[in-house]
Design a protein around this nucleic acid. Sequence first.
DNA 1: CGCAAGTTTGACGCTGCTCAATCACTGTGG
DNA 2: CCACAGTGATTGAGCAGCGTCAAACTTGCG
Lengths: 261, 261
Amino acid sequence: MTPAGEPYPTDNPLIRKLGRFVPLSGAECAALEQLSANSRKHPAGTDLIVEGDKPKAVFLILKGWAYRYKHLADGRRQIMAYLIPGDLCDIQIFLFEKMDHSIGLLSDAVVVKIPAAEILDLMDRFPRIERALLWGTLVDEATLREWLLNVGQRFALQRVAHLFCELCVRLSVVGLVDDAESFSLPLTQAELADTTGMTTVHINRTLQRMRKEQLIAMSHGRLTILDFERLAEISGFTQTYLHTDGPPIEQRLRSRLSPPM
Amino acid sequence: MTPAGEPYPTDNPLIRKLGRFVPLSGAECAALEQLSANSRKHPAGTDLIVEGDKPKAVFLILKGWAYRYKHLADGRRQIMAYLIPGDLCDIQIFLFEKMDHSIGLLSDAVVVKIPAAEILDLMDRFPRIERALLWGTLVDEATLREWLLNVGQRFALQRVAHLFCELCVRLSVVGLVDDAESFSLPLTQAELADTTGMTTVHINRTLQRMRKEQLIAMSHGRLTILDFERLAEISGFTQTYLHTDGPPIEQRLRSRLSPPM
DNA sequence: CGCAAGTTTGACGCTGCTCAATCACTGTGG
DNA sequence: CCACAGTGATTGAGCAGCGTCAAACTTGCG
């Protein structure tokens, strides 16, 4: 087992992410590495699964961006999550009869399709991985709550700022942010609008303002965070809900729970 | 084991709710019944747990209403869930070091505080209960997505209509809606506002409009749905995400998964 | 080079917010 | 039994944030 803080040397995004939740042994890493073997390329713009489908497998994103979304009858759309390398699309969603939302690709992507049975088997064999997956689910849920807060209570500029802070932190966990706090952002303004509950026109004006105020720079599908501190202050962003920084090692958790009270 | 569709006769809201997810045996019902033994009364307005606390237990609501919420620095508040009888407050939340939100009581309530260890034990002994709890978590998450869609994309009247439809369905599952589609709603307009991302003033005007249009009636903390069909149509509500109607029995699910493809 | 997709701009106005006052209800103490 | 206070509901006036519509512009790409 590699001690916490000394991650298993890998560029596998899943191992990188889960390794932050629980320390992973060599065997566990190998199993995860093996999972990633049967990857397939999918082109941008296609859907991995759409509302109404029977979910039979879980998708693991290795490269590229996916997003979770839902349409209303009148054409309005709400984006409910972005899935980046290392993210699993709802580990337990196969319990549902039908998908209640769709998952689409924002860029060309490398994706692993994992049959439900295989996930169950993996969790049986490696309880620590199961625990890490559970962590991941909890973080997804906390993120969803944060998005609700964002859309429900904040102003346009705050919403966008908060989103950018979150993405920056999440992407840096999987090594996709460079030293200049710059990263690939394969989103159109329409997608940003449907994420934050705004219109494209207003997103456009908000982005312009952010550029004028030296908060960000955008070009060629890359976003550069010029002033993370100020973005975080403006939007009230704190990264605790993402649980990226040293979550409790199993040991610590167990001792906290052992005296049942 | 009682066959599906012929529920174990009880007025225990937890059994009532879980029994809809999976068929429960007598032993399982007894275990759940026993859980509910150590209940305590809590007065309205108090918090069960607040942001920053270390979660060590799970709360089960037996009577009354609770709500999950989060404050911003400037005093704005977003309500992120309502918890009604039979609801558990985040079964796995004890994995987190600190609560990232608070849970408060909207009415006098009867609540069971279940130490994390006891929950784990229950899940060990009764896999079917574990499965039902997992279902519950998935439904919570689906509900959160629906709320995000609501707040992000719909107009004021639609938001309120959708919320009322959801509450009506959820409350009727635990037997809290009478024949006239009327139920106790211990919410102030301020709370409705913080749920839907609106102001109290606008909630007030929206409710007036709904009353004038014969959609609802409100008095003495009770809400009567006068025209559920139209409310649902206006807001685009469909109850599928709540998974109240005949979710797959274990058998069906297992056969669907067995050929791993 | 020319199309398609995405971005930007302007004019206009609706939805929903702010502020601030008044009203209604309920429980309290004298 | 009533004055009083506190909480929540209601109202009005004014306006700001953001949406709508429609057109022009820019960029990527075969």
